[in-house]
Amino acid sequence: MQINDSTQLSVPDIMKYHRNRYPWFFVDAVSLENGTDHVLGKKCFSYNEFFTKAALDASVPNFIIGEALEQTFLMTFMKNNPGLLTNTVSSECFYKKSVNIGDVLEIKAELLSFRRGIAKGKAFGFVGKEQVCEAAFVITVPEIMNNFTPKN
Protein backbone atom coordinates (compact mmCIF):
# COMPACT_ATOMS: atom_id res chain seq x y z
CA MET A 1 0.00 0.00 0.00
CA GLN A 2 1.34 3.40 -0.97
CA ILE A 3 1.03 5.88 1.85
CA ASN A 4 0.80 9.64 1.50
CA ASP A 5 0.19 12.60 3.75
CA SER A 6 -3.57 12.48 3.59
CA THR A 7 -3.95 8.77 4.22
CA GLN A 8 -6.48 7.41 6.71
CA LEU A 9 -5.42 4.06 8.10
CA SER A 10 -7.55 1.40 9.74
CA VAL A 11 -6.32 -1.52 11.84
CA PRO A 12 -5.28 -3.84 8.95
CA ASP A 13 -3.41 -0.94 7.35
CA ILE A 14 -1.65 0.08 10.58
CA MET A 15 -0.46 -3.48 11.12
CA LYS A 16 1.45 -3.27 7.86
CA TYR A 17 3.55 -0.50 9.37
CA HIS A 18 4.23 -1.57 12.93
CA ARG A 19 4.52 -4.91 14.64
CA ASN A 20 2.12 -4.60 17.56
CA ARG A 21 -0.58 -7.24 17.49
CA TYR A 22 -3.68 -8.19 19.48
CA PRO A 23 -3.95 -8.22 22.48
CA TRP A 24 -1.23 -5.55 22.61
CA PHE A 25 -2.61 -3.46 19.81
CA PHE A 26 -4.17 -0.22 20.99
CA VAL A 27 -4.86 1.97 17.98
CA ASP A 28 -8.12 1.74 16.05
CA ALA A 29 -7.37 4.32 13.38
CA VAL A 30 -4.78 6.91 12.44
CA SER A 31 -4.72 9.75 9.99
CA LEU A 32 -1.75 11.70 8.76
CA GLU A 33 -1.83 15.47 8.67
CA ASN A 34 -0.94 17.04 5.35
CA GLY A 35 2.72 17.96 5.03
CA THR A 36 3.53 17.57 8.73
CA ASP A 37 5.13 15.07 11.08
CA HIS A 38 1.89 14.83 13.04
CA VAL A 39 -0.32 11.79 13.27
CA LEU A 40 -3.80 11.68 14.75
CA GLY A 41 -4.80 8.42 16.38
CA LYS A 42 -7.95 7.09 17.96
CA LYS A 43 -8.61 4.31 20.43
CA CYS A 44 -12.10 3.32 21.59
CA PHE A 45 -11.92 1.45 24.90
CA SER A 46 -14.75 -1.06 25.05
CA TYR A 47 -15.84 -3.62 27.64
CA ASN A 48 -14.51 -6.31 25.32
CA GLU A 49 -10.89 -5.40 26.08
CA PHE A 50 -9.02 -8.26 27.74
CA PHE A 51 -7.90 -6.10 30.67
CA THR A 52 -11.46 -5.23 31.76
CA LYS A 53 -11.71 -8.68 33.35
CA ALA A 54 -8.97 -7.75 35.79
CA ALA A 55 -9.90 -4.10 36.26
CA LEU A 56 -10.95 -3.04 39.76
CA ASP A 57 -12.95 -0.09 38.44
CA ALA A 58 -14.01 1.41 35.12
CA SER A 59 -10.69 3.11 34.41
CA VAL A 60 -8.25 1.92 31.76
CA PRO A 61 -4.87 0.96 33.26
CA ASN A 62 -2.27 3.69 32.70
CA PHE A 63 0.21 1.39 30.98
CA ILE A 64 -2.42 0.66 28.34
CA ILE A 65 -2.90 4.40 27.81
CA GLY A 66 0.88 4.75 27.45
CA GLU A 67 0.89 1.98 24.85
CA ALA A 68 -1.85 3.71 22.86
CA LEU A 69 0.17 6.94 22.88
CA GLU A 70 3.33 5.13 21.83
CA GLN A 71 1.67 3.08 19.10
CA THR A 72 0.24 6.24 17.58
CA PHE A 73 3.64 7.95 17.85
CA LEU A 74 5.23 4.99 16.02
CA MET A 75 3.22 5.87 12.94
CA THR A 76 4.95 9.27 12.66
CA PHE A 77 8.10 7.55 11.43
CA MET A 78 7.05 3.97 10.62
CA LYS A 79 5.05 5.33 7.70
CA ASN A 80 8.43 5.59 5.99
CA ASN A 81 9.88 2.39 7.48
CA PRO A 82 7.07 -0.17 7.27
CA GLY A 83 7.41 -3.38 9.21
CA LEU A 84 10.79 -2.71 10.84
CA LEU A 85 11.39 -3.70 14.44
CA THR A 86 11.47 -0.86 16.98
CA ASN A 87 12.90 -0.60 20.48
CA THR A 88 11.77 1.85 23.12
CA VAL A 89 14.68 3.65 24.74
CA SER A 90 12.64 5.92 26.93
CA SER A 91 8.98 6.56 27.51
CA GLU A 92 7.95 9.28 29.94
CA CYS A 93 4.21 9.33 30.44
CA PHE A 94 2.13 11.72 32.50
CA TYR A 95 -1.44 10.80 33.33
CA LYS A 96 -3.53 13.79 34.29
CA LYS A 97 -7.02 12.29 34.32
CA SER A 98 -8.26 8.74 34.20
CA VAL A 99 -9.58 7.30 30.96
CA ASN A 100 -12.61 5.12 31.47
CA ILE A 101 -13.87 2.11 29.61
CA GLY A 102 -16.30 3.51 27.07
CA ASP A 103 -14.16 6.59 26.42
CA VAL A 104 -12.64 7.39 23.05
CA LEU A 105 -9.02 8.44 23.46
CA GLU A 106 -7.91 10.78 20.70
CA ILE A 107 -4.17 11.12 20.30
CA LYS A 108 -2.04 13.71 18.61
CA ALA A 109 1.53 12.50 18.06
CA GLU A 110 4.37 14.65 16.84
CA LEU A 111 7.77 13.58 15.52
CA LEU A 112 10.42 16.04 16.71
CA SER A 113 13.36 14.32 15.01
CA PHE A 114 14.26 11.14 13.21
CA ARG A 115 17.96 10.76 12.55
CA ARG A 116 20.01 7.63 11.98
CA GLY A 117 17.32 5.35 13.29
CA ILE A 118 16.44 7.30 16.43
CA ALA A 119 13.02 8.87 16.69
CA LYS A 120 12.17 11.49 19.30
CA GLY A 121 8.75 12.93 19.82
CA LYS A 122 5.66 13.49 21.90
CA ALA A 123 2.07 12.39 22.07
CA PHE A 124 -0.93 13.98 23.73
CA GLY A 125 -4.15 12.20 24.62
CA PHE A 126 -7.59 13.78 24.78
CA VAL A 127 -11.04 12.61 25.84
CA GLY A 128 -13.42 15.04 24.23
CA LYS A 129 -11.70 18.41 24.42
CA GLU A 130 -9.88 17.66 27.66
CA GLN A 131 -6.22 16.63 27.63
CA VAL A 132 -5.86 13.58 29.86
CA CYS A 133 -2.28 12.45 29.27
CA GLU A 134 0.94 13.12 27.45
CA ALA A 135 4.20 11.34 26.81
CA ALA A 136 7.69 11.86 25.41
CA PHE A 137 9.39 9.03 23.56
CA VAL A 138 12.80 8.01 22.28
CA ILE A 139 12.51 4.99 20.03
CA THR A 140 15.11 3.29 17.89
CA VAL A 141 14.87 1.37 14.65
CA PRO A 142 17.85 -0.99 15.09
CA GLU A 143 17.99 -2.01 11.44
CA ILE A 144 18.67 1.62 10.50
CA MET A 145 20.70 2.60 13.58
CA ASN A 146 23.08 -0.35 13.21
CA ASN A 147 24.25 1.06 9.88
CA PHE A 148 25.90 3.83 11.91
CA THR A 149 27.50 1.94 14.79
CA PRO A 150 31.16 0.89 14.95
CA LYS A 151 31.81 -2.68 13.90
CA ASN A 152 33.81 -4.81 16.31
Binding site: I118, M145, T149
Partner: peptide, 10 residues
Protein backbone atom coordinates in the same frame (compact mmCIF):
# COMPACT_ATOMS: atom_id res chain seq x y z
CA UNK B 1 26.34 1.35 23.31
CA UNK B 2 24.60 1.81 19.97
CA UNK B 3 22.17 4.39 21.34
CA UNK B 4 24.93 6.16 23.25
CA UNK B 5 26.97 6.26 20.06
CA UNK B 6 24.23 8.24 18.32
CA UNK B 7 24.12 10.61 21.28
CA UNK B 8 27.89 11.10 21.08
CA UNK B 9 27.74 11.80 17.35
CA UNK B 10 24.98 14.36 17.89
Amino acid sequence: DSVGHMGLVA
